[in-house]
């Protein structure tokens, strides 16, 4: 018999459904149908990097460092930037020296507040050049394109949504009003 007790409550140090879902989709679109699909969580079993989301555009590296170093020494901090303006666009990558520190961060810091916003953390296979830029059409994060709520910490309304609104107003009331 092996002694392997099972958790009686959920664990907070697992990869998010978002990560697992995103990587699953990619797998099926590959050309090799015979290939045994690998578990997307395998990439993360020694991960020391976290993706951190829902930051305010105004949160500084120092603030992030102050909070995240409570889980261990921060090895590297990469701010997410708007592809065009090169200004912070509300996310970052935090790299620790050890996997355990990254897991502890998921458990103890993910879902708490930084700069008075609830932040999101997700295990990440590691930062690569290029990933510091937003992937949205207008340069920021995709989620900021279509957001219908006003979020003063993240540039007001979603950009596509705001453009859309503006266009509609112009159609209704004529330009220049």
């Amino acid at each position: 018999m092996t002694v392997s007790p099972r958790s009686t409550v959920d664990r907070l140090d697992r990869p998010s459904a978002y990560y697992l879902g995103k990587n699953k989709k990619r797998k099926y679109s590959q050309d090799e149908p015979d290939k045994v699909p690998e578990d997307p969580a395998d990439n993360l079993k020694n991960a020391t990097t976290l993706y951190v989301g829902n930051l305010s555009f105004y949160t500084t590296e120092e603030q992030i460092h102050e909070l995240f170093s409570k889980c261990g020494e921060v090895k590297r901090l990469v701010m997410g930037l708007d592809r065009y303006t090169k200004t912070p666009c509300g996310f970052c990558f935090v790299e620790y020296y050890t996997h355990q520190d990254a897991l502890d961060c998921l458990k103890y810091v993910g879902g708490t507040k930084l700069d008075e916003r609830i932040i999101r953390t997700d295990l990440d296979p590691g930062f690569e050049e290029g990933r510091q830029y937003g992937r949205g059409k207008s340069g920021g994060q995709v989620r900021d394109e279509y957001r219908e709520e006003y979020d003063p910490g993240r540039g007001g309304y979603g950009r596509a949504y705001a453009d859309d609104q503006k266009q509609r107003e112009e159609e209704e009331y004529g330009k220049g009003r």
Binding site: K70, C71, G72, D104, K107, Y108, V109, T112
Partner: peptide, 9 residues
Amino acid sequence: QHKLVYYHS
């Protein structure tokens, strides 16, 4: 036993 920040949380 754990990091202090756990007890904060």
